Amino acid sequence: MSCLFCQLIREDSTQWVARGPSACAFTPLDPLAPGHTLVVPTAHYADVFDTPIEVLAETVELVQLLARAMRSGLNATGVNVLNASGPGSEQSVRHLHFHVVPRWPDDGISTWPTGQSQHRFAGDPAVQLADALTVGEHPRS
């Protein structure tokens, strides 16, 4: 398997912010803002659909810890947490990852979509989602 993030983890060839047994955080090559960090599970999972709930929870816990550190250590007034999962999402690396981007007023960047999807859906998407959740498309209890 040729996964860039697995290679970085295996070769210890990045600037680490945090390393744990199930999740780690490192700086990207081209950060959007000072302190922009990627949080990934240490084992390879392609996306949010593929990741066991326990690993996802531990990864998101590190996202939260990192966001708090951005607020206290960088004086960020907010963060954007960004994830793309699956082929229709513009996912650039097929290893689950979250971008945690510290934000400040008037920092000059926008990470929020500026347009709306052109995809059309027959029926009510909220009803379809609710129905899918009731037939087993939800986390294990």
Rank of each mutant, 00 (worst) to 15 (best):
D12H: 04
D12C: 01
D12M: 03
S13R: 14
S13Q: 08
S13E: 06
S13I: 01
T14Q: 02
T14A: 11
Q15E: 02
Q15P: 00
W16A: 05
W16L: 02
V17S: 06
V17G: 05
V17R: 07
A18P: 00
A18V: 03
A18E: 01
A18Y: 12
A18C: 01
R19H: 02
R19P: 00
R19L: 01
R19E: 04
G20E: 03
G20H: 02
G20S: 03
G20W: 06
P21S: 07
P21C: 00
P21L: 02
S22A: 09
S22Q: 09
S22K: 05
A23L: 11
A23K: 01
A23G: 02
A23E: 01
A23P: 00
A23T: 04
C24N: 02
C24R: 04
C24H: 02
A25L: 04
A25T: 05
A25Y: 04
A25K: 06
A25G: 07
F26E: 13
F26V: 05
F26W: 03
T27Q: 09
T27N: 04
T27R: 15
P28L: 07
P28M: 07
P28E: 10
P28F: 09
P28R: 13
L29F: 11
L29C: 03
D30Y: 04
D30M: 03
D30N: 15
P31V: 12
P31A: 12
P31H: 13
L32P: 00
L32K: 13
L32V: 14
L32E: 07
L32H: 08
L32W: 07
L32Y: 15
L32S: 09
A33D: 01
A33L: 06
A33F: 06
A33S: 12
P34M: 05
P34S: 14
P34N: 12
P34V: 14
P34T: 14
P34Q: 14
G35A: 14
G35R: 12
H36N: 15
H36M: 08
H36L: 08
H36F: 05
T37H: 06
T37V: 09
T37W: 03
L38W: 13
L38Y: 14
L38V: 05
V39H: 08
V40Y: 15
V40L: 04
V40W: 10
P41L: 14
P41N: 08
P41R: 09
T42L: 05
T42K: 10
T42R: 15
T42M: 06
T42W: 12
A43E: 15
A43Q: 15
H44T: 11
H44A: 12
H44W: 13
H44R: 11
H44C: 07
Y45P: 01
A46I: 13
A46Y: 01
A46L: 12
A46N: 04
A46G: 15
A46R: 10
D47I: 15
D47A: 15
D47K: 04
D47R: 04
D47G: 13
